[in-house]
Computed example of a mutant assay.
Amino acid sequence: MRSLTRFTRAAATASAVALSALALAGCTAHADAGPSIAATAAYIQQPTGKTTDGYFDIRNNGSATWLISVTTSVGGTVVFRAPVRSGVAPVVMHTVSEIPIPADSTVQLIPDSYHLLITDPGPMTDGHDITLRLKFAHGRTITILALVTNPESGGSSYFLD
């Protein structure tokens, strides 16, 4: 009887491992069908007037895509900004319709490169989060939290620390 119990447990364990392997294989096949994207380190500067800027990192483990729109939980209009020419001082920005996200790369939205310009947002409080909804060209939409920071009062961000 004891060996039957051991056999049953071993068979159950083997079945669980096999099902896990099949599930992972299915997930991998699904991930290859489109971009695998994550955004991190998001923060928004607390507005001091009618506009503010937003920054974050996007990691793309899949095929190339483009960030085509962003909406916020506090409203406002979001546009993408980019330097007119890279490596030229002073940095002159212009509005672009999308941000390219190359395959297998990390893109940083930072002050002297691509970033968000948010016009007429609702109230934001230093130290609290807002939600950003990022839409990509391949139809993928992800939602992330962005910390509201106030650099004038010492609010932190990974750029300021």
Results as ranks from 00 to 15, higher is better:
V92L: 12
T141K: 01
M124W: 00
D104Y: 04
F80M: 03
A42G: 10
F136S: 04
V78R: 14
L132P: 13
I144W: 07
Q46A: 11
Q45P: 00
L160Y: 02
R59Y: 03
I99S: 03
M93V: 08
A12N: 05
R81L: 15
S153L: 12
A29D: 13
T8N: 09
D161R: 09
H94P: 01
D57H: 10
I144V: 12
P90N: 13
Y43G: 01
S36I: 01
I118P: 11
P90K: 11
R9T: 07
K135S: 13
T40I: 11
M93A: 10
K135Y: 02
K135F: 01
H94W: 05
T13P: 04
G155M: 06
T119S: 15
E98G: 00
T143K: 08
Y43D: 06
R85P: 01
T65A: 00
I118A: 06
F159W: 00
G155R: 02
P90E: 13
R85K: 15
T131Y: 01
T71C: 03
I142P: 03
V78I: 13
F159N: 08
S157R: 06
H138L: 10
G127V: 08
D161S: 10
K50N: 04
I99F: 02
A103F: 03
R59F: 07
I118D: 06
L117Y: 00
A41E: 14
H128F: 02
I110T: 13
S36N: 09
G155A: 07
T106I: 15
H94K: 14
G26L: 11
A14H: 05
A137W: 01
V70W: 00
N60D: 04
A38P: 02
P151L: 11
A42Q: 07
Q108G: 11
G155F: 03
K135R: 14
V17F: 01
F80A: 00
A14N: 01
A82S: 15
V79L: 02
S15C: 09
T28L: 14
G154Q: 05
